[in-house]
């Protein structure tokens, strides 16, 4: 983010923001409803990630393009209308591409509209940055969110069904861990990933710094 008096980030750094430093799932712990709810399989997780990325990219781009003409009193209303539009578009698109995925994701496609990441990015980044920078940042954030979802989805599918992308990995005798495809499994796997991510970050920091604390939001 461009903070006055600070060297602006290069585009690569801007992209990496969302993947590593401000990963929406592992660092900001934002948008947990879809993360926990649709990460029962790798395909669902990826579809959700791509859908969210699409909405994120399109809406922040549009917000960035009109950032200088929107009066600040009505900016939130404008953002919401824009986000809702792209969510509706993505809803139609998914139904047109695959009905199976559409039914698996269910109401969570429409619920992208309340995903805090998107409004957060529109308000905190897109409304203050030019379109190219916004697009790069949004892509990074979307990729980070997709990676987070996929990390959960693949573990839950492997343990919960013995499959990855629907392909059986361990033969017919595999014992599925039913708890992994139930809601508690989502919390367990998310917790385990947060543990790993923070441990890696602390090690990368080179010191036994404080564990990054993250509170869960919508």
């Amino acid at each position: 983010m461009a903070i006055p008096g600070q060297q602006p980030l290069s585009h690569l750094e801007e992209f990496m923001e969302g993947i590593w430093k401000q990963n929406p799932v592992f660092v900001m712990v934002l948008g947990m409803c879809p993360v926990l709810a649709v990460s029962v399989s790798a395909v669902n997780a990826l579809s959700m990630g791509v859908a969210t990325t699409f909405v994120l990219l399109c809406s922040t781009l549009l917000v960035s393009l009109i950032r200088n003409v929107v009066p600040k009193e009505v900016r939130i209303a404008t953002y919401i209308v824009i986000i809702a539009t792209f969510v509706t578009v993505v809803d139609y698109l998914i139904a047109a591409i695959s009905l199976a995925v559409y039914e698996a994701l269910g109401a969570f496609i429409q619920l992208i509209v309340v995903n805090c990441i998107i409004l957060g990015r529109a308000e905190a980044h897109a409304s203050k940055n030019p379109p190219l920078r916004t697009a790069v940042n949004a892509l990074g954030m979307g990729a980070g969110f997709t990676i987070g979802l996929f990390a959960l989805g693949s573990v839950r599918e492997i343990l919960g069904a013995g499959k990855l992308f629907g392909v059986a990995l361990f033969g017919p005798d595999f014992q599925p861990w039913v708890v992994m495809v139930l809601p508690p499994g989502g919390f367990f796997v998310l917790g385990a990933w947060l543990l790993l991510f923070n441990w890696l970050k602390n090690r990368a920091a080179g010191s036994a710094g404080k564990l990054a604390e993250g509170g869960a939001h919508g």
Partner: peptide, 10 residues
């Protein structure tokens, strides 16, 4: 409770 949820049959 964990294994009850994970392996309900066994």
């Amino acid at each position: 409770a964990f294994v009850q949820a994970a392996f309900p049959v066994s």
